[in-house]
Every structure is written in C-alpha cells, then in structure tokens.
C-alpha cells in the first residue's frame, strides 16, 4: 500500500529517532532498491552488497535528510545510484559477467553469504527475461549518466521529474540525457544486435510493424 506523502514524511521524521520506523521504511523500499541495483548490475551477489551499503548509508545519514516534498525513495535511489556508479568505477565493467561465469565455471559462482538457491533462483529470474538482458547487455556499454537515466526511466518506470529528483538534475537535462542515451543505445543495437546468445529472444525492436509486439521472453 502506498503511503501518501504526508504520512511518509511523518514516518521519515520518526525514523530519525525510532528504529522501528526506520525498519518500516526499509521494508517498504528494499525490493524497489534491490530491483533497481540488480537491473543496473545484472549480478545478484553484487546487488546484495550494494544494497547493503545503500541502506547503511541511509541509516547513517537519515538525520541529515531533509524532506523536499518527494518520496523518500528518491533519496534511496540516489544513494543506490552512487553506489552502483562507484562500483563500476572501482572495478571492471560487469559486461558479460554472467556469461563469463558460465563459460569459466559452468555455473553461477555463489556468494558465501547467501544461500546458494536464492542466488540461483534470482539469477534465473534475470536470465529468463532475455529481452531485458539483451538491452542491458548494450546498456552497460554506455557511460554512467546514460545508464542511470535509461534504467530509472524505462526499467523503474519513473517519470521525468522523478528521475530528475533522484539524480539531482533538471528535467530538461534528463530529457536531453535520455534522448542522447537512447540514440547511443540504438547505435549499439544496430551495430551488434545480439550481444549475447539469444536465440529465444522474440521481440524484434527493428520490426516495422505498426504495433510493436509485446515481448514474450523466451517463449516462441
């Protein structure tokens, strides 16, 4: 159930001094933030670590949080975005990491801190969405600023003004970044339409039909 903004504002204020309130905020937004980070990284174990960092930083800094009339989740998304960007800066790009693990080991390397079946199930969930995975395969080749806006706008279904709030940019800048990002994404897709093995991908974004097909993801 969605909280109205005033109720959320009160909850955030309580969370500055009451751990139970912070727990409620955590429960409310964990899945959204985890989903966002997973979509940015494509790796469950990495996403777990980055989400842990995100919420710990939120806990550390919640006293400094100032209500600005938008959802608390925007702040969490911003922290998570910074975490993902820092992750990419300090490590090699994750591109093809899933495939590389399969090629190298024949299985997904489990995180010691998470039950293996959870990792496998979650990774399978990502794998099943072949179309999404294909787009993500191209997306991670773009610079961070384009990854951010495209992921938030299209994968998280955020409105332009919401993306602007999360990233601390003006709506005009977001529109511009989106336009340029999609342009670059299209160029990548045109030059390499199949970054992964994807014989079961149905949606053809080059289709000339008037009504783009609804993706059916892995089912022909």
């Amino acid at each position: 159930m969605e909280l109205d903004l005033e109720s959320e504002r009160q909850l955030v204020e309580r969370a500055k001094t009451e751990k139970e309130a912070f727990g409620q905020l955590f429960d409310r937004y964990y899945s959204k933030i985890f989903g966002y980070v997973l979509k940015r990284t494509g790796d469950v174990a990495v996403a777990e670590d980055l989400v842990s960092e995100t919420f710990f930083k939120a806990m550390k800094n919640i006293k400094k949080f100032q209500w600005r009339g938008v959802s608390f989740s925007a702040w969490l998304y911003r922290i998570a975005t910074n975490e993902v960007n820092m992750f990419y800066r300090r490590s090699k790009p994750l591109e093809l990491s899933i495939e590389a693990e399969h090629e190298a080991h024949g299985f997904d390397v489990p995180d010691l801190n998470t039950p293996e079946r959870d990792i496998v199930e979650l990774q399978d969930t990502v794998e099943r969405h072949a179309q999404y995975k294909m787009v993500q395969g191209h997306l991670i080749k773009l610079s961070e600023k384009y990854q951010e806006v495209i992921t938030l706008r299209y994968f998280e279904n955020k409105k332009i003004h919401e993306v602007a709030e999360i990233l601390g940019k003006s709506p005009g800048t977001i529109k511009s970044l989106l336009s340029r990002g999609v342009h670059k994404l299209k160029a990548l897709m045109d030059s390499d339409p199949q970054p992964f093995l994807q014989q079961d991908i149905i949606l053809d974004i080059d289709t000339e039909t008037d009504h783009p097909r609804v993706p059916t993801y892995g089912r022909k």
């Binding site: 899945s31 985890f34 989903g35 997973l38 979509k39 469950v44 777990e48 959870d118 979650l122 969930t125 990502v126 099943r128 969405h129 179309q131 999404y132 787009v135 495209i150 299209y154 994968f155 999609v182 949606l203 783009p212 609804v214 993706p215 993801y217």
Partner: peptide, 11 residues
C-alpha cells in the same frame, strides 16, 4: 523500451 518487461525480483 517503455514496454520492456524487466524482471521482478525478490530476495
């Protein structure tokens, strides 16, 4: 892209 179905994940 707007119609792209992203995976729903629970952990």
């Amino acid at each position: 892209l707007e119609n792209l179905e992203a995976p729903e994940v629970y952990n």
